[in-house]
Simulated assay, not measured.
Amino acid sequence: MRAKSIFLAATSATTVNALSFTNANFYNITIGNPFNITWSDAQGPVSLTLLKGGTEPFFTNISTLASGLTASSYVWTPAADLTSDTYLIHFEDSSGASAYGFYFALVDAPYSIATTPTKTTVAATAAATTTTSSPLSTYTYP
């Protein structure tokens, strides 16, 4: 019985909560749009750091997104001064445990499309009909 108790104590002492990101939706991150970063099993306050591309140890530290976080989520809005590229987020808690998020492609905000329609003039005569929207798209039907 004593050997079994020692084995259980040793097993529970080596079991560590796996510090990790809990959202895997890192595929639709757009400059200017909020993105919810979530994690679990943090020990104390945490910090989030934005890193740029490459592979470890060749990450480039871009900026600290937040530090001293005591909740298990943070809403980050990528700033307009970031460029479209490959990034990842590094998470570290106060015990020194750390985790990396998924690589993601940060993309520019979609271009806005004008909602006002362009004006097209149609002229009809007995001999021909001409539709004009620009000089390159004018065509006369016989």
Rank of each mutant, 00 (worst) to 15 (best):
G32Q: 04
S47Y: 00
T132I: 15
A18R: 13
A18W: 13
I31W: 03
S133L: 13
N17Q: 11
A109Y: 14
T115I: 08
V107Q: 06
N61L: 12
T60D: 09
Q43G: 07
F102R: 13
A10W: 12
N17H: 13
T118I: 08
G96R: 01
I6G: 02
Y111I: 03
T86H: 05
T132Q: 15
L65F: 01
L65M: 04
V107G: 04
P57V: 13
I89N: 03
T60K: 13
A24F: 15
A80N: 00
H90F: 04
D85A: 15
F35L: 10
Y87Q: 01
P45T: 11
A128H: 15
T132Y: 15
A3H: 13
V107D: 09
A127N: 11
T132V: 13
T116L: 04
N23Y: 01
L8P: 00
S5C: 11
S84E: 04
T116I: 07
S40N: 10
N23I: 06
T55K: 15
S5F: 11
V75M: 10
S47P: 00
A10G: 12
S95H: 06
K52M: 14
S98E: 10
Y74S: 03
L65Q: 00
E92P: 05
S40M: 08
G54V: 03
S134A: 14
F104V: 07
L19G: 05
T132K: 11
W39V: 01
T115N: 10
A18L: 09
N23G: 14
P34F: 08
P117R: 09
T77Q: 03
